[in-house]
Design a protein around this nucleic acid. Structure first.
Length: 283
DNA sequence: ACCCAGGTGGCTT
DNA sequence: AAGCCACATGGG
């Protein structure tokens, strides 16, 4: 059964579906249907999402419309966020113009933890392949949706009960051990709620979570918008645009904290997307 | 064959 | 604190 819900919003110019799902924050919205719509999964439901002009249309296998609107951060005022960022640092102008429709999605914490552990020293197409394989093998079946069987992201408890041999097919390499250990801790210890510093402290003790992955988890999993993940692309853009030494991540973090403040996560995403899409060449 | 990818852990200065 | 290097996998 597929439910259709159309949502008409009169000032949705700060939204672009393609940019939102392809900017590198999520790894499972890869099924582009040829008309600009995408199919993906959130929790235990699948959706086909279309966006054109000021209308966003959800065809969903379940869940409330509100949940899907929340997932894509539709209601937030990104015009205001972008104005503030450009005011704080005019150098962001081009990157923001380029990625003006990006929204920072509201993703599931465990999915973000697992995904970004897998992401380390890996490239995005391959990360997506690994995660999809993981979902097909260990995720609960949602059922057929637009001609394909869709799967949930595997529960942490399922991964926690896996051996490294169980996961061999997924080809995570040395990250397999990190993923299983993370699942075990996540299931047995849980995470501190509410306090971002306590959360950082707890997650930083997971093996396989270093500063970069930690910041991605804080940003995408805990919605700590002050987080500023520094990966190879951000290193390049911070070098080229701001003159930082490429391994001066501490300097980059400090710059973000001082100039972007509580909006650092948005700034990072505009910069990352801008630079990665241009292959590091920004005239 | 080499280099790279949304890096990190561990060991050596 | 800072500088190496191995780590598993696949694509260019």
């Amino acid at each position: 059964m597929i439910y259709t819900s159309k949502l008409e919003l009169d000032d949705l110019k700060d939204f672009d579906l393609k940019q939102t799902v392809e900017c590198g924050q999520c790894f499972r919205w890869n099924d582009e249907m040829g008309d600009g719509s995408y199919i993906g999964v959130c929790g235990k439901y699948a959706a086909r999402v279309k966006y054109h002009y000021e209308i966003i249309e959800f065809e969903i296998s379940g869940g409330s419309l509100g949940r899907w609107v929340d997932y894509f951060d539709i209601v937030a005022d990104y015009g205001e966020i972008k104005r503030k960022l450009i005011e704080r640092d005019p150098k962001l102008q081009d990157a923001i113009e380029f990625g003006k429709g990006i929204r920072i999605m509201h993703q599931d914490m465990w999915e973000v933890i697992a995904s970004f552990i897998i992401s380390q020293n890996n490239n995005i197409p391959r990360i997506k392949g690994c995660i999809e394989a993981l979902c097909e093998k260990f995720g609960e079946e949602i059922g057929d949706f637009y001609g394909k069987v869709r799967y949930m992201f595997p529960e942490a408890s399922v991964i926690a009960n896996c051996t490294e041999e169980d996961l061999a097919d997924i080809k995570l390499g040395y990250r397999t051990e990190y993923l299983i250990e993370a699942a075990k801790r996540y299931v047995s210890e849980g995470l501190p709620a509410g306090d971002m510093d306590a959360l950082r402290e707890t997650l930083s003790q997971y093996k396989g979570i270093g500063p970069k992955v930690l910041n991605c988890i804080m940003l995408f999993g805990a919605r700590d918008l002050s987080a500023f993940p520094v990966d190879v692309w951000v290193k390049r853009v911070m070098h080229d645009m701001y003159g930082f030494d490429e391994n001066d991540t501490a300097g980059m973090q400090k710059y973000a904290a001082e100039h972007f403040g509580e909006l650092s996560g948005y700034a990072q995403q505009y910069l990352f997307y801008y630079y990665r899409e241009h292959g590091g060449e920004v005239e």
